[in-house]
Design a protein around this nucleic acid. Structure first.
Length: 301
DNA sequence: CGCTCTACCTGTGTGC
DNA sequence: TGCACACAGGTAGAGC
């Protein structure tokens, strides 16, 4: 569920609620929180005693820098929430980890579908020497996140380079947008929104698009993200809420995602639903002309 | 090597 | 009302 805008809303919530606080306790309520952990260098409890100095984000990953070039890494998966609660509040259903703060507050990592993760890793320098992501001036990034590309809103993202890399992929453009290793932060909702705004059909081969078109797509995607962030993100249900439990409002402004059979806001043509890269995909076939032969397309190019 | 597909979970909505 | 099934915001790994 959470894509870049939703994760950024959570990050900002953590900054206002937890920055400057010291972690006084960590209780693991469900070991499955570690199932997707990678490059673990120490138990989660080793973060007890650390002061939260910043909350960093790259794409959909969050991390808290720890002493000795380590970091507490978090990913919300499909259904993860980070909620601020008083330490004596009832434990929410599906709570996986609880962090106690020195001001009497508590941070609950809640995750219905258990695709989320939380663990401690070591950090390494970024390849380009630039700050690792939003919310940090450090050029150190957790090792398991080093393969994640800079996100669409990162000022250090080079759109020319990214567009060239995207163009090398012999895959549908939507599959490339969902691939977090080239450019990160885009998930299923905003991929559909960005492609519609850029009038590109999701099944078009990335290699068949010009670099200029791809650069424009990345720019459009960052603009959609910025608008969603201003609305607090997209909430279809209570699975996505901010750290205080409030939903976002961008679902009211979605132009295409979830609007199957409804008229396109640009041309009125009914929006169609198809499967691309294994994901439900929404498209206006009039605004986003399909590729000449969307099906049989082998190694031609 | 590069790409597609599935598994990993719990919950909800829909159609019979 | 109950049951079976499809589907849901993500990712890594298996398999081709």
């Amino acid at each position: 569920m959470p894509e870049l805008p939703e994760v950024e809303v959570v990050r900002r919530g953590l900054v206002t609620h937890a920055r400057g606080r010291r972690l006084t306790g960590i209780e693991v309520c469900d070991e499955r929180i570690f199932r997707r952990a990678r490059h673990v260098c120490a138990p989660l409890e080793s973060a007890i005693g650390a002061r939260i100095t910043e909350v960093a984000r790259r794409g959909k990953y969050l991390w808290l820098p720890l002493p000795d070039s380590r970091a507490l890494v978090m990913h919300l998966g499909m259904s993860g929430q980070i909620l601020a609660n008083p330490s004596d509040a009832v434990r929410p259903r599906h709570t996986r980890v609880q962090f106690l703060l020195d001001d009497g507050g508590r941070i609950d990592f809640v995750d219905q579908r258990t695709f989320g993760a939380c663990w401690v890793s070591e950090c390494e320098p970024t390849v380009d020497g630039q700050p690792a992501g939003e919310g940090t001036s450090s050029a150190m990034i957790p090792i398991p996140l080093a393969h994640i590309g800079r996100d669409v809103c990162d000022p250090a993202l080079n759109r020319d380079t990214a567009a060239r890399r995207m163009r090398q992929a012999r895959r549908p453009i939507k599959a490339v947008l969902l691939d977090q290793t080239i450019v990160s932060g885009i998930g299923n909702i905003y991929a559909d929104e960005a492609l519609h705004a850029a009038t590109i059909h999701p099944l078009r081969w990335a290699s068949g698009l010009s670099c200029a078109r791809l650069r424009d797509l990345l720019l459009v995607a960052s603009e959609v993200m910025a608008r969603a962030l201003a609305q607090g993100g997209t909430s279809f249900d209570d699975l996505y809420v901010d750290i205080a439990g409030h939903p976002g409002y961008f679902q009211r402004e979605l132009a295409i995602y979830g609007r199957t059979s409804q008229p396109c806001l640009s041309c009125g043509y009914p929006i169609e639903r198809l499967i691309v890269a294994g994901r439900g995909t929404h498209v206006c076939p009039r605004c986003q002309p399909p590729p000449a032969r969307s099906r049989a397309r082998g190694r031609g190019a």
